[in-house]
Nucleic acid binder design. Structure first.
Lengths: 144, 144
DNA sequence: ATATTTTAATTGTATTATACAACCGGAGTG
DNA sequence: CACTCCGGTTGTATAATACAATTAAAATAT
């Protein structure tokens, strides 16, 4: 295996993580805070989910997700549905408000990304998306 | 522009940021905490730098970097060098201890990444590295 | 030359994201 | 039924971060 590729990936990834976090926290884009967007996004992606599943997917402690979903519920973005088969468990699903807020935020982020990647070739964008996707999947397999 | 690529990039990036942060905070790899690694890494990359330059590069508030560099200095990982041309300014440069700690941590991260990307083709790894690098540069141009 | 403004950095304070540990109550199993 | 396991919440602590106020040096303007 070529070490240079690895080194480059490692280097760039470290920086990227910080930068993504920075723009994701930027209040100019949408109204949702970073953790809210992350969670709503994943509930939308996974479908109605309990805190455990969300925590695993996002590599967060269950207690963290518990608090964050409680906050989302309190703001009316998600609805807590008791699991009929298990008296302890719930799933959260997006409310209409939550769906609307998520979409609005997502559009804002997409617009920003679109501007950023304006000068990239279609081939680069497509390839980048696929590799990011593949990386996240690889990650899930090994770590999850 | 194809919206699907954008959407995929946006989606995966959101998740990726969370996952990278999670593994970067994992104490099993190296001894440096996340912010220490990030900073030492960038000092090593940029050469001796002041808090302002580091803050800009990492999109952090100057006060944050000031505290973090102070902590690094206190631990002996960096040395504070007064700027001879400006009585207010300093640069930080890596000490031997700092260099050693950084390298050790970096090796641990590389080993993990190597395992993760074991089954990828060399072409994929190389392409991923280049695209990440390009993305960070694009970012710097537009945002910085 | 002095006064004003700008700048590099630090420090005070508050917030958010997060983890770990203790706990509660329902589910599954011997 | 007793014991253990599991989903979730709550208490508590810490780390990362931002914004505002401050300090002192440098640059600029009068």
């Amino acid at each position: 295996m070529e070490d240079r590729s690895l080194e480059l990936i490692e280097q760039e990834m470290t920086l990227l993580a910080r930068r993504i976090t920075a723009i994701a926290s930027d209040k100019r884009f949408g109204t949702l805070d970073r953790s809210a967007y992350l969670l709503l996004n994943h509930i939308s992606f996974l479908g109605p989910s309990g805190v455990k599943a969300l925590a695993e997917e996002l590599r967060l402690d269950i207690s963290t997700v518990s608090r964050q979903t409680a906050a989302l519920e309190q703001k009316g973005f998600v609805i807590r549905i008791p699991d009929p088969r298990d008296g302890r468990a719930f799933t959260f699903q997006l409310s209409e408000t939550g769906t609307a807020a998520l979409n609005e935020d997502r559009q804002a982020r997409l617009a920003q990304l679109r501007a950023l990647l304006e000068e990239w070739s279609e081939e680069e964008r497509s390839s980048f998306g696929k590799l990011l996707n593949k990386f996240n999947h690889t990650f899930s397999k090994e770590e999850g």
